[in-house]
């Protein structure tokens, strides 16, 4: 299954392997996003967090599952998601107007309601001091909300915050920007990224590219 993210119900330790720098390696990083657990995706700006999230949404919606995106800073770009083949009609987009507390409450409600394949909280542009104020108990509550369900809970931020609550932590960083052509007529071609996936204290490193 090239270019698709596999989501499994069971918790199986995954052996990530190093791959060549090809575009197909990106999904293999997140090959086993666990359902019924919290996964954290962290990284600074231009580190591929959103591309990874869109890839997950595209994969879920292509299986006719419904997804929810709790967008704290209202940064979701539907056009860019549609390019990544996300079925927008199956994505519940909640714009929280900069209020992280509302996003966590809404995530809790959706997790309790059930039926969603993926619930993502996008805290990617939320100031770190705001996220640090979220108590660990809130993350635990969210984790318990999705436990024993088929919902994969994803949190996107600049740093890892949920610590032991998350079953999988993916830290991303940008290696270099890829431009095609010679100046002055060049185009933005993509980003070369590095990812470190940590599960059960075992970290695996990968490098891959996302292209426009």
């Amino acid at each position: 299954m090239i270019g698709a993210t596999r989501l499994r119900g069971e918790q199986i330790p995954v052996k990530f392997g190093f791959r060549e720098h090809t575009e197909e390696t990106f999904p293999s990083i997140v090959g086993d996003i666990p359902r019924g657990a919290l996964t954290e995706i962290a990284g600074p700006a231009s580190s591929g967090r959103t591309s990874l999230l869109h890839s997950l949404l595209a994969n879920m919606t292509s299986r006719q599952e419904f997804c929810a995106l709790l967008d704290v800073e209202n940064t979701f770009d539907p056009e860019s998601a549609a390019t990544a083949e996300v079925r927008l009609s199956q994505v519940l987009w909640v714009r929280c107007g900069g209020n992280a507390e509302h996003a966590l409450k809404a995530a809790d409600m959706l997790a309790q309601g059930g039926g969603f394949g993926l619930v993502a909280i996008d805290l990617g542009d939320t100031p770190e001091k705001v996220i640090r104020r979220i108590p660990l108990a809130a993350w635990f509550r969210l984790r318990h909300g999705v436990e024993n369900t088929r919902t994969a809970l994803i949190a996107v931020a600049q740093q890892i915050h949920a610590r032991s609550c998350s079953a999988l932590k993916i830290e991303l960083s940008c290696q270099r920007t890829l431009w095609r052509g010679q100046l002055p007529g060049c185009f933005l071609h993509g980003l070369e990224l590095a990812a470190q996936a940590t599960r059960n204290h075992c970290a695996q490193k990968h490098t891959f590219t996302v292209r426009r």
């Binding site: 591309s51 940064t75 860019s80 542009d125 996302v210 292209r211």
Partner: peptide, 9 residues
């Protein structure tokens, strides 16, 4: 979906 695409925030 075939491959991930670069996203815009």
């Amino acid at each position: 979906p075939l491959r991930p695409k670069l996203a815009l925030r």
